[in-house]
Simulated assay, not measured.
Amino acid sequence: MLVELVKVAKFPWSPWLAQVRTSFGGTAVRWCGDQAAQPGKYHVEWTVDEDIVWGRNARPADGAGPGVRPGGHCVVLRGRLNLTDNGAAVLDFDGSQILLDLAGPLPEGTDGTWVELHIEREKIALHPYEL
């Protein structure tokens, strides 16, 4: 996914964080790239390092379409949830696929629906890559 990196910063209580913008929102998340990265456009892979628990950090989305925004101490990701044959889940996030670890089964009928994930910003990471 192509994002616009606004800045990379480090605070004493957190890992390196990147302030990023997309065409559907922006937020700050953990940055796994060069700490001296300059503002600009970067291709990134998103990862979520938190188990998904329906009703706790995952719920039906209000509306359709991808989204990303700050939510207090969390980041809110909105995407289409798809279940795999082996019991895992993938969030389709504007064409980018984010593999999710499920802590338990999801309710019937959630496959293919728009969901919101509320994840601590330190548990969402951006990994820049070159094309």
Rank of each mutant, 00 (worst) to 15 (best):
V75T: 14
P107G: 07
D62Q: 13
A64T: 15
T22S: 12
R121M: 15
D85S: 08
E50F: 04
D51W: 13
D49E: 14
G71R: 14
G55T: 06
N82M: 00
A125P: 03
Y129I: 13
R80H: 01
A61V: 05
I98K: 04
V53Y: 09
I124W: 04
G63R: 08
S14G: 07
T27I: 08
W16L: 12
K123Y: 12
K10Y: 09
F24K: 12
S96I: 02
A88P: 00
V53N: 07
A36G: 15
I124H: 06
Q97P: 01
T47L: 04
A36D: 15
L106N: 03
G104S: 14
G72R: 07
F11W: 11
T47I: 06
G95H: 11
L5A: 06
A28S: 15
L100T: 00
L83C: 05
G87R: 02
T113V: 14
I98T: 05
V53F: 08
V6Y: 01
W31P: 02
E108Y: 11
R69M: 10
G63N: 08
V3M: 04
Q19T: 14
G72W: 08
D34T: 08
G72E: 09
V8T: 11
Y129R: 14
E122I: 12
G112R: 01
P12Y: 03
L99G: 06
W13R: 12
W13T: 10
Q38S: 14
S14P: 01
N86V: 06
L131W: 15
D62G: 09
D92Y: 04
E4P: 02
T27M: 07
F11C: 02
Q97I: 02
Y42Q: 07
W46D: 01
C74F: 13
G55N: 05
K7N: 13
G112Y: 02
G67L: 11
T110D: 02
I119V: 15
H43G: 13
G104R: 11
G95V: 11
G112E: 02
P12I: 03
G79A: 05
W13F: 10
D94V: 05
L126W: 03
G95E: 12
A61N: 03
R21W: 06
E50P: 03
F24N: 11
V6Q: 09
P15F: 05
G26C: 06
R69H: 09
R78V: 08
K123N: 14
V8G: 07
G79M: 05
K10A: 12
